[in-house]
Design a binder for these strands. Structure first.
Lengths: 300, 300
DNA sequence: ATAATGTCTTTTATCGTGAAAAAACATTTT
DNA sequence: AAAATGTTTTTTCACGATAAAAGACATTAT
């Protein structure tokens, strides 16, 4: 096996959803843009749609013949990229306990366990190293630094520095900047979520990320923007295993965001600073509370 | 060619220098620690030393027979790791002009041009991406973002944030911390360099890096410490091509460092802040002045 | 003439492989 | 018994090869 065709499979699945909406599909280049793949992949998708009787395809005409059935879709797990598979697998091991700080990471073993080649694992580890959880020993193995309290504190320290600065930059943006419209839209989404928090609380983390990324982008600094990847990754996995008081936590956070948004709209630096600090403080609290003092994290 | 033996060659060369100092070499594990390699490599080195008549080796006894001659050493260029070779080659192209922002980077072409495998180039690019100069398009090529004025400004913004904080943390360190002795030692080195600046000005950049790393380490934050890698890399290459007023620049910088050191030793936060700001300001000036393309990218 | 389709070429993603280097284990020496 | 040496196994590093995917070029349709 040299390369999985997950790009094709994922795009195919997304392409199927388009069939519900139209009688005939647009041109190949247009479909490529729509699905975010090249024409080569678009054509593979169209070929299969034709073979399975979903469309009649003749040059420019791509007529929809029937609605897609569940069995037309490729299984979800086949649409993931190798990098995603490795990351998930690695994080599961990391959080599943037994992953103590100082432990060494074996590329070959990881590769065998996950069932992929060593190259992919190596590349993953290199990419992952920027999160500060692992470290390479020259000419030798990787060392796990562990998801410790120290890590969480170091992470939040930077986060707070960056976000306070970004928030200040945001508030100083001119009236006609497009971000204000983005902020308005996010505010509406927050209000909608707040009013249905009892049932939709689990939708918060996605909204949270979009909100903070918008603010960070105002810094116009690639290092700040990129650092949010680290935060997002940590919070993503953190939320997966720490479900304690999820509803309550998210309810509080939504309200904090709304106050934060109001402060930004006031464009008063002092108010922005205060609202930002308040939210960041509780975010840090949430993260820290899930890490037992001076010890390795154990999942529930 | 599967893997170059540069680790062996480099360690061998370093091992040769030990022969001048002693009548006989220590034990294998000891040599391993000394040279930073495994016993396997130590034994290869000893074998060659024996073959070339440098030592007589019989179990524990490793008697030096003669002093190493220039031809005993492996050529310098064979002691570099592939990663170093690729980085140098890549940076040369980047700085040698013709490398405009937006240009796409071709892994295969780079690999062919440098004469290495694609895997090594890929891994290099992934590692290099954290410097913020290149960016990956999913399932496609890398894009060069360019060493622009905007880049320099974003870099220095973070640097200033981090260093001010680190310097403050440094000054707040207890009297009995080992860093004060390190600082004293660096101060002496600075004074020595200052008194012979006319001839030794080119030694400054190495001293500069050690000094700033010491300060950053006081932050006790891995993200801050790691970020210095980005700064060090940029300054390293920057100095290689911008030799204008090098002596004058370094002379000023040494004096600024001495003032900065004095401020740290005073442990007065205000003085530290002022000295740090002053030095960072001129460092930024130096970097910016060397970026010709004054393409109207204005600081915020 | 423009924009689509059809065809061909290039590049990326991933694997298995083999040598270098590390690490583990066994044996000998002090 | 501890520490060294000798031997074997394992892991890392780097390569070429190959299918997937992107991209470029040629041709055809509006």
């Amino acid at each position: 096996m040299s390369k999985s065709n997950n790009v094709y499979k994922d795009a195919f699945n997304r392409g199927l959803r388009l069939l519900d909406e139209t009688r005939s599909l647009p041109s190949e280049p247009e479909l490529g843009t729509l699905l975010g793949v090249s024409r080569t992949t678009v054509r593979s998708i169209l070929s299969r749609m034709e073979e399975t009787g979903l469309i009649a395809w003749n040059k420019r005409s791509k007529t929809v013949l029937r609605a897609p059935k569940p069995e037309d879709f490729f299984p979800e797990e086949e649409t993931d990229s190798l990098a995603e598979i490795i990351e998930r697998s690695f994080m599961r091991r990391l959080l599943a306990g037994g992953a103590e700080a100082g432990m060494q990471i074996n590329e070959l073993e990881l590769a065998r366990e996950i069932g992929v080649g060593t190259t992919s694992v190596r590349e993953f580890l290199i990419r992952f190293s920027r999160f500060g959880l692992i470290e390479k020993r020259r000419n030798s193995h990787w060392v796990l630094k562990g998801f410790t309290r120290a890590f969480a504190l170091e992470l939040t320290e930077i986060r707070e520095m960056f976000e306070l600065r970004s928030a200040a930059a945001f508030a100083a943006l001119p009236e006609d900047s497009a971000v204000w419209a983005d902020l308005d839209r996010l505010e509406i989404e927050h209000r909608q979520l707040a009013s249905a928090i009892a049932t939709r609380f689990n939708e918060f983390s996605e909204l949270d990320e979009r909100f903070h990324r918008l603010i960070h982008r105002a810094s116009h600094n690639r290092f700040i923007v990129d650092f949010y990847d680290v935060i997002a990754m940590i919070f993503h996995y953190h939320y997966q295993w720490n479900k304690a008081q999820e509803r309550e936590r998210n309810e509080v956070a939504v309200q904090e965001h709304l106050a934060y948004i109001a402060a930004l709209k006031s464009r008063d630096p002092a108010k922005v600073d205060a609202a930002c600090r308040k939210h960041l403080k509780s975010a840090r609290q949430t993260l820290l509370s899930s890490i037992p003092e001076g010890r390795q994290v154990q999942p529930a």
